[in-house]
Amino acid sequence: MSGPLFANALVSGLLLAGFYAAVSVGISIAFGMLDVVNIAHPAFIILGSYAASIANASMGADPIVTAVALSPAFFALGLLLYRFYHATFERRGREPLRGLAFFFGILFVTEVALILAFGVDYRSVTARYIGTTWRLGTVDLPLRLFVPFVVSVAMTLSLQVFLSRTFFGRAVLAVGQDQLALQLMGVDPVRIKQIAFGISIATAGVAGALLVIIQPVQPSLGREYIGLVFAIPVLGGMGSIAGTLAGAAILGVATSFTATFFGPSWAPAVSFGLLLFALAFRPSGLFGR
């Protein structure tokens, strides 16, 4: 194993981990804190990719600028979706399987809508930094990965600060621990969950813009990310943003090393084997409560 190859694999893994954190932090909120099994999360990521791609093709807009500009729209979409989910499923009792079916439906409806509207061709974006690679000694730093890494880490850390330092954040943590107790303190848990779910979907929109910077996308690509977006929060500990970052780092680096030294086809097997191994010793995840 050569030093430069090792260093490049490590850096690529960490950069990949940043992106992984962006795609899974929303699930950590929805599934880990709100008990909403939003399996359609990857569909909203792809929706974010398409929004960034369309704005890029028609106006030349930078994908990240588009993501930030559209995050209120994704937030509003999340508010509406949760309100609908609550009214039609959640309020009628805890039936996680029916809720799962609801979000599976949303996943496929979104995918089919994108196919009908834009076809099945891959879409990509152009930006000055996408083809640029910085060299730090023997280590390559492709901006195509580095820019999403910076945006993702900034978004994830901001969420961590927001959830741990603000009173709304404390209410979100509380709703995940004991919804009834929270309600009996005068707090409307549905309102708290609705806003937090909106934030979760807004992160998916941003993650989508980062995804289309990293690779071209097509409507059914979201399904490939279902395993990943759930595996990372499970590994890190459901409902823990710090755990999501740690889980993303472990899977990102493991994926990169496996792909570099053993071939890309081994990467998912090693990553998910690592997940199973970790959960065997710590079922609640690395940072689980």
Binding site: F167, F168, R170, A171, L173, A174, Q177, D178, A181, L182, M185, G186, V187, R191, I192, I195, R289
Partner: peptide, 23 residues
Amino acid sequence: FASMTVLDNLRIPLLYAARAHPL
């Protein structure tokens, strides 16, 4: 709320009870 401090357990009702717009 097990993962919160005793003080934070009280801050939540103080902030939200009797208030319609917590944000």
